[in-house]
Each structure stands twice: as structure tokens, then as C-alpha cells.
Simulated scan of single mutants.
Amino acid sequence: MTPTIGSIVLFVYGLLLILGGVMGASAGSKVSLIAGGAFGVLAVVAAAITAYGSNRPGLILGGIVALLVMGSMAQRFMETKKFMPAGMTAILSLIVLVLVVVIVLRGSTSKPMTDPGVSVEEPR
């Protein structure tokens, strides 16, 4: 497994969605737990797909998750006018969506994260 920027972004995003679902459940919202858990797990699965070599499909799945969450949370923010949690989640999802689209369009999905000071030599 070689983590890429895309896989790390999607993994952190998935964990934040799961955490948000748990926090919503502690406030009495079962819907938050189910939605946050489901979309969070999908984002983590997308991160795993991306990290294990199928970069584009994983990034596309992650982008779809971010788009769906962004749409849902933006609509909720417009209805409630409360920044927390809907507005913040919509903005976070927009950021993830933009990052994923940029990574896919630049075609840099297969570049692993390495330390710039360390040279990696090819075996002969």
C-alpha cells in the first residue's frame, strides 16, 4: 500500500463524517449516526481503493460521496441557517470534492507521498 494525497484526504474525510455521525447520535439524532456512518465508511472504502492501486475509481467514489454530502448539508444549512454542523460539513465536503477533481484532472493520482529529501532508487 502506498498512500497518496487523495487516499489520505478521503480517509480523514471519512473519519470526520463518522465522528460527526457519532456526535449527532449523542445529541439524539439516529439519522446523523446512520448517514454519517454510511457516508464515512464509503469515504474510507474510497480511500482504501485509492491507496491499493485503483486510483481513479476510488477518487470517483470519494467525489460522489463528497458531492452527495455537500448537497444534503447545503440544503439543511439553507433550511436551518445554522452553521454547525450543516454549513461546516457542506464546506468541508466542497473542499474534498475540489481536491478530488483537481487530482483526477491533473492525472497525479499514482504519485505516492514521499519525503522530498529521500531519493528512491529503482531496483536493477
Rank of each mutant, 00 (worst) to 15 (best):
E79M: 10
E79A: 15
T80A: 09
T80F: 11
K81M: 09
K82L: 10
K82A: 07
F83H: 07
P85E: 02
P85H: 03
A86D: 12
A86L: 06
A86V: 03
T89V: 08
A90V: 02
I91Q: 03
L94E: 03
L94I: 09
I95P: 00
I95R: 01
I95G: 04
V96C: 01
V96I: 14
L97D: 00
L97T: 01
V98P: 01
V98E: 05
V98W: 05
V98G: 05
V98M: 10
L99G: 05
V100P: 00
V100Y: 00
V101C: 04
V101G: 01
V101S: 03
V102P: 01
V104R: 00
V104I: 15
L105I: 06
L105E: 06
R106V: 08
G107C: 08
S108D: 14
T109D: 10
T109E: 13
S110P: 00
K111H: 06
K111F: 08
P112T: 08
P112A: 13
P112G: 13
M113V: 15
M113E: 11
M113S: 08
T114H: 13
T114S: 11
T114R: 13
D115Y: 11
D115S: 14
P116M: 07
P116E: 04
P116Q: 06
G117P: 00
G117Q: 12
G117M: 09
G117V: 05
V118F: 10
S119T: 14
E121L: 14
E122D: 10
P123V: 10
R124G: 14
R124M: 10
R124T: 15
